[in-house]
Design a protein around this nucleic acid. Structure first.
Lengths: 209, 209
DNA sequence: TGTACATCAGTGAACGCGCGTTCACTGATGTAC
DNA sequence: TGTACATCAGTGAACGCGCGTTCACTGATGTAC
């Protein structure tokens, strides 16, 4: 059997998509296993619980993303002594998303929808899990911006990074619907990569305002 | 009995807060009625169903917001022939939020959390309900920007407004947690009004980039 | 002013349903001697 | 190479629980004559 076709992978694939579409509580294990065409009990056999399944769905995405991202960040850190353009810095943040999309279609919007849902869980286990395990990425990014823009205070950079994060997550999570509107109202069909490219100048102008 | 203390109002108040904190599916009617100190069956007596309760929670917020907003928009539209500063235009969008906060504490972050959850409902009834009933606000705002910035294409304005929306909703929804971090890490305590004020230059720079 | 009836706000208990999880079990594959 | 046992992946059915909703009912207030 193909390794990408194991029961465990089939469950992760189905759960990822359904969680992104409907949310965690709104998606039952019965819906997931029906979509994945596997037995109901196999979720608890492979993952132990629904909670663990949710974390594993995240882990697969976040580890793929940060693996690509850390390489980009190292590249940036090497160039810190020379002048760094804001657009180049933001691209480093965004480029690893393209690799995700190459691997599987709609990965970006699925990923962003999941991230949005994780942040919405104000008091849930998921938000802490994500920030504990992957908060260092934001920190490393902050250090880079501090060196590139010594005239901005630390807390200004902190806030502006979150404005940027908000734009990215919100726009890309809803990008399917927004692209549809743009296509019908303005005759402008765009791939999700185009949407991201259009965001960079907007965000760069804000960051150095 | 005080009109603000009726069973119906008590339910709306409790539901609003719990929905914003945990989400719609994650909040049971039993939790709501326990918090509101009313009988379980009274939710279905006053609202008919949980679904209707959710819509009514939204309606109360959105009607209060748009009531304030339409006045601001009319003011802007009157001044369209003269030069309009981007910051002034964005302030019109944001000022009505302050009135909400004056009425009751934490209204802004509660409102934004609810909006974020509504947008997350990709296929749910709530997203359509919100956009159907209040999408005209965004449209009116688009027209204003089109006249103020004739050099930008319609679809550019469309996208940039959504970047702005994303920043606002995401940052303000998480503002409690973010303000806490800013206070402990940078010794910078801010009211939510300060957070909004700091966003305006960032967003204005992006809009006219 | 008094009586009869209607409407309204609220209540306690129960309903059936879908949920995550568990359990005893099966059959295939791997390992030891 | 053959036999005995262990491990692994998966399964069908059932479990108890919490959920939104419903129902018959109560008591207070309003309205008509």
């Amino acid at each position: 059997m193909n390794k990408n076709d194991t029961t465990k992978t089939k469950i992760l694939d189905a759960a990822e998509q359904l969680f992104a579409e409907r949310g965690f509580a709104e998606t039952s294990l019965r819906t997931i296993t029906a979509r994945a065409k596997v037995n109901l009990a196999s979720v608890n056999y492979h993952f132990g619980s629904k909670k663990s399944l949710i974390q594993d769905v995240f882990d697969r995405f976040l580890s793929a993303y940060t693996e690509n991202l850390t390489a980009e960040l190292s590249l940036l850190e090497d160039k810190l002594d020379s002048d760094l353009d804001t657009k180049v810095m933001l691209s480093a943040f965004v480029k690893p998303l393209f690799s995700l999309e190459n691997r599987r279609k709609n990965s970006i919007s699925t990923f962003m929808r999941l991230l949005g849902r994780a942040y919405a869980e104000t008091q849930g286990h998921l938000r802490r899990y994500v920030t504990d395990k992957y908060g260092f990425v934001l920190l490393r990014f902050m250090v880079i911006f501090q060196k590139a823009y010594p005239n901005l205070s630390n807390d200004q950079i902190f806030w502006r990074l979150h404005y940027t994060l908000g734009s990215l997550i919100f726009t890309l999570a809803a990008s399917d619907a927004l692209r549809e509107i743009a296509a019908s109202d303005f005759d402008k069909t765009m791939a999700i990569e185009d949407v991201i490219d259009e965001m960079i100048p907007f965000l760069a102008a804000g960051m150095k305002a």
